[in-house]
Simulated assay, not measured.
Amino acid sequence: MSELALGATPPTPAKPAQPDRRLGHHLNNQRLIMVSYLIDGVVLTAFHFAGTIGWAPVLAYTGCGLLISVVTYALIASGWTQRFRDTGIAVYQTIPAHALQLACMAWVPEVSFMFALLLFIVYCTLTLSLDPLRSVIGWAIAATCTAGVLAIVGTPLHMPSSNLPEQVISFVFFVITLWRCVLIGSFNRQMTSRLKARGRELAELTAKVDLLAHHDELTGVMNRRSLFTALHDELQRAERTKVQLCVAILDLDRFKLVNDQLGHLAGDRTLKIFASTLSQLTRKADRFGRYGGEEFLLVMTSTGLDTAETPIERMRAALTEADWSAVAPGFSATFSCGLAAWRPGETAEQLLQRADNALYRAKRDGRNCTRVD
């Protein structure tokens, strides 16, 4: 029966291995459903030997239940259900299961309580795959149909208890039903925990993707694309508010020698230490990142040439005190800087070109200095 149709999982973020994992999960649940129908058949058989019902309801219920499960299993295994949002087709499987319970309730009123409990389990399970509104609709349909069957039959729900065997069987079935409720609740809690875990994984993955999209992978500071975006935004703001804006291109001196003499790993460590040291001295309103290779760009908002060199010299001093031992014993690094202030009507490309020209003069004048354009 479909009360253990635990494959009704809410949609989760897709991963490459997810379809196979979900398919195996649904097929395993169908096996559990088959076992569940067999358990119901055993209970009905016990009622038969207790003299409550005949063989026909036992065989009909068990056979129909297993048929529903086998057909559902075959559809899921063939991949046909992949076209549906709920690939376990719990909703569609519930319809014949519901009809089976109601039919048996009308056919065998002597054990109608059993099928009412099974119907309860069916819809408890179904709510795992439905939103609140559809769950209410499902509940209304189940209640209406059950009330209709009871009205047609004309007898109230009956629990066999006329003799000791019937009392024992009814009690055992009630205990089994409680176990199924506990199992469904436990599964629901498991699924909720898994969904939360996957939600956290997705959030972490999104954060990593965002970090890679906007930051340099080696140094962790802003990458070239993000710098250009930030610079264009600041230029637009400067155009509107007429505030001052300066950019500085910082280039590590003789960086090629570091790679050639100490190796590229040492070069990477140099870039990391350089970026980490300078980024700690950058104001929150400013933007600092890797412009390309060993060049870094500093966008200083609300800053004119009269004050722009102060933070740059502070950075230069911080480099002399930085710990470069991870690169090589006795190693130290300096940088040359090209500085330019934005002029009204000037584009980002023009501003950067003037800063680059200033950097070229700083290199030409002996490095480890700042020149202004």
Rank of each mutant, 00 (worst) to 15 (best):
L133G: 04
V136W: 10
G154E: 09
T146E: 13
M159T: 00
V153D: 11
L133K: 03
G154R: 08
I152H: 05
P132K: 00
L157M: 04
V172T: 12
P165Q: 04
I169M: 02
V168D: 01
W139C: 13
T144K: 05
P156H: 05
S170F: 05
S170L: 01
D131A: 12
I169K: 03
L164H: 09
D131I: 08
T155F: 06
L133I: 07
S135M: 10
L164S: 14
A142V: 15
F173A: 11
N163P: 06
V153A: 11
P156T: 08
P160Y: 00
I137R: 07
L130T: 01
P156I: 02
G154W: 01
M159R: 01
G154Q: 10
L157D: 06
F173P: 07
P165V: 00
V168P: 06
S135P: 10
V172E: 08
L133C: 03
L164M: 14
L150P: 13
L157Q: 05
C145W: 10
L133F: 07
N163W: 02
M159C: 03
S162L: 11
A142W: 13
I169Q: 04
A140Y: 11
P160V: 02
V168A: 01
Q167S: 13
L157V: 04
V153R: 10
Q167Y: 08
W139M: 15
L130V: 02
G148A: 11
Q167P: 06
S129A: 02
G154A: 13
C145R: 09
A151I: 06
I169P: 06
G148K: 04
S129M: 02
D131L: 10
P160C: 03
I137D: 06
L164V: 15
H158K: 01
A142N: 13
Q167C: 09
V149T: 00
T144E: 08
W139L: 15
V172A: 13
D131V: 10
L157P: 06
F171A: 13
I141F: 14
Q167D: 11
S161I: 02
